[in-house]
Amino acid sequence: MKLLYYPGCTLKTSAKNLEKSAFAIIEKLGHEVEEMEDWNCCGVASSLTDDDLMHHLAPLRNLIHVQDQGEEKIVTLCDMCYNTLKQTNLRMKEKPDDLETLNLFMDRENDYKGTVKVLHFLEFLRDEIGFNALKKMVKNPLKGMKIMPYYGCMLLRPREVAIDDAEEPTILKDVLKTLGAEVIDNPFKIECCGSYHTIEEKKLVSDRAHRISKFAVERGSDAIVLSCPLCRFNLDVRGKEAEKLYNNYKQVPVYYYTQLIAVALGLDPKNCGFDNHAVDPILLLKKKGVFEKKED
């Protein structure tokens, strides 16, 4: 199967490791991935005022280009891109008048017909690959690792675009179980990491990271798994900075689920870009002996 992929800005810059590890998995699973042509920024934050159609233009243009390439599905890796594209897609379906206005406005583009489906890579793994199939391919089970899944906001809210239950999501838990890790539940798994405040309100975001991680650590987790590049930055980098603000606080490593899958599938750790983390992610994997557990 060939996957058409929408990267977004961050996957090409500070979250290259998310892209690389995902690509390695796709290849290992025997599928192809193709980056869509002529993509542009998704706009990151979905338009929240009713009269503001302008900010739907960017995501819509991407959807049109997917349509132009004759594809029905577009897979994203970034949670924010996923959310923005999907919210625009939904609005275009629910409000045909808005779609018409925008189609008229974009006279250089083809008209959008509303047929594209926006998928998050997690959905692809769950619904099209299946966790059972994935489980069979695990070579280095993450045995002994106690990990807290962290979802953040954009995978779950608003409910209309969620990939899982908005209050009790399980998809990352299921990934971890598939990989053989022990799952530590955390009620803060669905709470905001601080998002873009990481630029102007660093302490605020460090506080968030501290609160979320501390709860996980208190319940015995030694790592956090997540999917969003901004959440990763905030929990990892701002979490590390929180060590200076809170006595005896130590930030645990933060992984992308793609990194853990890649490791568990026995892929070369180079695919994971572990050097780009504030808290060393390799140390724990080594400590738990994950790399030595090759089962074949």
Partner: peptide, 20 residues
């Protein structure tokens, strides 16, 4: 916004901040 921050913080955070 300092140059160093522009280089280290994920890009989407900036887009988001400007949008808000």
């Amino acid at each position: 916004i300092a140059k160093e921050e522009k280089e280290t913080i994920p890009q989407l955070a900036f887009v988001c901040l400007f949008r808000k």
